Deep mutational scan, measured.
Amino acid sequence: MKTQEELTEIVRDHFSDMGEIATLYVQVYESSLESLVGGVIFEDGRHYTFVYENEDLVYE
């Protein structure tokens, strides 16, 4: 089982391919040991929310 830090790094690596990240945040109250819920804001102003669970990243 991966730690929350490892899950965060996986998500950061994925989004870094889309541009320069200004902020990546995790909603700790919605996340667990198996899933990571949060959002990412890019330097150009784009903002996505995401759920990473079971090695699957869903964002909008």
Rank of each mutant, 00 (worst) to 15 (best):
M1C: 09
M1G: 11
M1D: 07
M1V: 11
M1L: 13
M1N: 12
M1E: 08
K2Q: 06
K2E: 03
K2F: 07
T3I: 05
T3M: 05
Q4V: 09
Q4K: 13
E5C: 12
E5G: 08
E5L: 12
E6F: 08
E6R: 04
E6K: 06
T8S: 09
E9H: 11
I10W: 10
V11P: 01
V11N: 01
R12V: 06
R12P: 01
D13F: 15
D13Q: 13
D13G: 14
D13K: 15
H14S: 08
S16G: 08
S16T: 10
D17C: 14
D17F: 15
D17G: 14
D17L: 14
D17S: 14
M18Q: 06
M18N: 03
G19D: 02
G19H: 02
E20M: 12
E20S: 12
I21W: 03
I21M: 04
A22Q: 12
A22S: 11
A22F: 09
A22C: 13
Y25E: 04
Y25R: 03
Y25A: 03
V26N: 02
Q27W: 10
V28P: 06
E30K: 13
E30D: 14
S31K: 11
S31F: 09
L33H: 14
E34F: 08
E34W: 09
E34N: 14
E34T: 11
E34D: 08
E34C: 09
E34L: 11
E34V: 11
E34S: 14
S35Q: 12
L36S: 02
L36W: 05
L36T: 02
L36H: 01
L36A: 04
V37H: 10
V37L: 08
V37Y: 11
G38A: 01
G38T: 02
G38P: 00
G38Q: 01
V40C: 05
F42R: 00
F42E: 00
E43A: 15
E43C: 12
E43G: 10
E43S: 15
E43Q: 13
E43I: 14
D44V: 02
D44S: 04
G45R: 04
H47M: 07
H47N: 05
Y48K: 01
T49M: 08
T49L: 10
T49I: 10
F50L: 01
F50N: 00
F50K: 00
V51A: 08
V51G: 03
Y52V: 05
Y52W: 09
E53D: 08
E53G: 09
E53R: 15
E53T: 12
N54Q: 09
N54C: 08
N54P: 05
D56G: 14
D56S: 15
L57E: 01
V58D: 07
V58I: 12
V58W: 13
V58S: 14
Y59Q: 04
Y59V: 10
E60R: 15
